[in-house]
Nucleic acid binder design. Structure first.
Lengths: 150, 150
DNA sequence: CTAAACTTGTTTGTACACCAATCAACTATA
DNA sequence: TATAGTTGATTGGTGTACAAACAAGTTTAG
């Protein structure tokens, strides 16, 4: 019959994560929205800057996007000529992606805003809390095994 | 000109929030997926259980969804007869929503799973860290002014 | 060898969430 | 009682996520 068991929405991890994410998105929008990049698109560009060249799928692993999501992100970035795609000569299933010079330049100008965004997101916390929070969050974000070698 | 300024994706608040959210969604799915409710639908039902009757828009404020999102959630819940809608006699713009008896019963059976979901989401942390984390997260989740009276 | 089973990379279809813009109904002001 | 401003709900468009499909590569048993 289950009479009203307690459940406080405002104390649920999922609800709070969602709201924190909303706030972060708003900040992201404010800082980077001008260039019409989404957080995922930005993540893909930044990671590509680090690794130079990878298969689409592998990039997905590096940025925590599933393959289908990655393909959409890549498609939109490619249509704006921010990245290049070419087939892998050794494996015809693979599409190798890399930054275009235009993309490379754009990422470099945005990276500092990227750092600002995290700073502003954590702004309600004192410095000690910020580190604490990121550490705890990192523990919670572990999904399964990580990337691989390539 | 900007030569490679540092930016570690894995330490950005947004990226970690997103991954934590992904993990939470997976847990939610595992625990509640059988009944085909999304986290937002569940939040709406649970909140409706608390307040009995509110306008659609106001429910959105209580659950941190914007009006457009709320309307989609309500529509889907109504199509499954989990909630009822009726016009507000005092304000013809408003739609007053409330749980159907079916919806009420469903929420009651799911609330304990809801609590499990948060527990399992926070499972990688020790009890002290859990409280810490939720407190910090709540600070970050503050957007602007809250609801209102009605 | 080579055919079957399995794995991995990419794409397609669908549902959902979010924003911006719109329209309708209420409120305040002059 | 007009007019401007505000609030409730809806619509359309974009982006993300999951599941399923398909194609290419690898492994294993005959």
């Amino acid at each position: 019959m289950a009479a009203k068991e307690g459940y406080i929405l405002e104390r649920q991890a999922g609800h709070l994560l969602r709201r924190a994410h909303q706030r972060h998105s708003a900040i992201f929008q404010e800082k980077i929205g001008d260039v019409q990049l989404t957080p995922l698109q930005f993540a893909a560009l930044v990671k590509l800057r680090d690794v130079t060249e990878v298969s689409q799928n592998h990039l997905g692993r590096l940025t925590a996007m599933d393959a289908a999501t990655m393909q959409g992100v890549i498609k939109r970035l490619a249509s704006r000529n921010l990245i290049k795609r070419r087939p892998d000569p050794d494996d015809r299933r693979r599409l190798i992606v890399s930054l275009s010079s235009e993309g490379y330049e754009l990422v470099n100008t945005l990276v500092s805003s990227g750092n600002d965004i995290t700073a502003q997101t954590l702004e309600p916390l004192c410095p000690a809390e910020r580190k604490q929070f990121l550490d705890l969050l990192a523990k919670l974000a572990q999904l399964s095994s990580n990337d691989a070698s390539e």
